[in-house]
């Protein structure tokens, strides 16, 4: 039996939590209010639990609009989407995923190509290329090698190395399969990037969802949703990450010009990384970079080289200090 005084106290705490919630949602909340709130939260572990309950209720009520959002039809514009995927900071992908449960419904019928001619695409280190696909388009990053083929089931993209960002319409009548490192990725109308770096596979989904499973078996597949990423080290187990964390990856550089470091790093982050000025481009870097957040990596390079990082929504630029 619960002690009635405990019960009453619990109710009182929940009422306080609710008052805090309403207060902090108002436009009048001040810095002092937030500090008082923090003090209240920390004064009793039950406070935090009660406040979390109010938040859970708030989110329960959201499912009201969720169904409507999922069926909303928007026009798919490859350019706009390309910007989205390219511009958003890695950490914001989670937020992007929330807004991205929208699917394109209309499509222009494209005649199915005749069977199985294989096309090899190689993109030089310092350029990138956009290729047209039956279901949309793909941006192929520098240093990528891939094979494009088609059969009765649809198009196949086999990525040998490098990074490719796909912008695909939702169209159940055709299928695009991406093959990389023994894994098979099937899109379900989406924007996602697939990278193969030193035999590790990284799949980062910006919008929609994809299904990933081993090529060898038909069964077990994992769905990765917008805002999530998946990392599979060479030959290892798959791990799913939320607002992705690449810090398990390390990039070694031996006397590499900054321009080259920037090109290499660009493959891992959603914004391109640029170098301003020829002198800065020629600076050389030797060391190992742990791929934390863009910001942390930029700070690390700043400590080694006479450069300053500048962040903008379009790019991260290194300029001479």
């Amino acid at each position: 039996m619960t002690d009635p005084t405990d019960k009453a106290e619990e109710q009182a705490i929940l009422a306080q939590a609710t008052d805090w919630f309403a207060n902090l949602r108002s436009d009048d909340a001040s810095e002092q209010d937030w500090l008082n709130f923090e003090a209240w939260l920390e004064s009793d572990p039950r406070h935090q639990a009660a406040f979390t309950q109010v938040e859970a209720l708030w989110l329960d009520l959201d499912s009201n609009s969720e169904d409507a959002e999922q069926t909303k039809v928007v026009e798919f514009r490859p350019r706009a989407s390309a910007r989205w995927a390219g511009v958003l900071p890695w950490g914001a992908l989670a937020a992007a995923g929330v807004a991205a449960l929208t699917f394109f419904v209309a499509y222009k019928p494209i005649p199915r190509p005749a069977l199985a001619s294989e096309q090899v695409i190689e993109v030089a280190e310092n350029e990138s290329r956009t290729i047209a696909l039956q279901k949309g388009s793909a941006v192929v990053a520098g240093g990528t090698r891939l094979t494009l083929s088609a059969d009765a089931q649809g198009q196949k993209v086999q990525i040998r190395s490098g990074a490719v960002t796909f912008h695909l319409k939702h169209d159940p009548s055709r299928r695009l399969t991406v093959l990389a490192q023994g894994q098979r990725i099937i899109d379900i109308g989406t924007v996602f990037t697939t990278r193969v770096v030193n035999s590790s596979l990284i799949v980062q989904v910006a919008e929609g969802e994809v299904e990933i499973g081993p090529t060898s078996s038909q069964g077990a597949a994992l769905r990765v949703h917008g805002g999530e990423a998946l990392v599979r080290p060479a030959g290892g187990a798959v791990s799913r990450i939320v607002a992705a964390d690449l810090s398990s990856l390390r990039r070694p550089y031996q006397n590499a010009p900054l321009a080259q470091v920037a090109i290499d790093l660009s493959r891992f982050y959603s914004r391109p990384i640029k170098v301003d000025g020829e002198d800065a481009a020629k600076l050389r870097f030797t060391g190992v970079l742990v791929l934390d957040s863009e910001d942390v990596v930029a700070r690390r390079l700043e400590t080694y080289l006479p450069i300053k990082a500048r962040f903008s929504p379009e790019a991260l630029t290194f300029a001479p200090r």
């Binding site: 938040e55 708030w58 989110l59 959201d62 969720e66 989670a94 937020a95 995923g97 929330v98 449960l101 081993p214 077990a220 994992l222 769905r223 949703h225 805002g227 999530e228 599979r232 187990a237 798959v238 791990s239 799913r240 990450i241 939320v242 607002a243 964390d245």
Partner: peptide, 28 residues
């Protein structure tokens, strides 16, 4: 709250993973 909302939706469709930031799943 946006992140929690997003995670809930993912969880509804795929309950296999917990609230932990990183969830390792055996390939099979």
């Amino acid at each position: 709250l946006d992140q929690m909302r997003h995670r809930r939706r993912a969880t509804v469709r795929d309950q296999a993973w917990s609230d932990a930031a990183v969830d390792t799943l055996g390939a099979t």
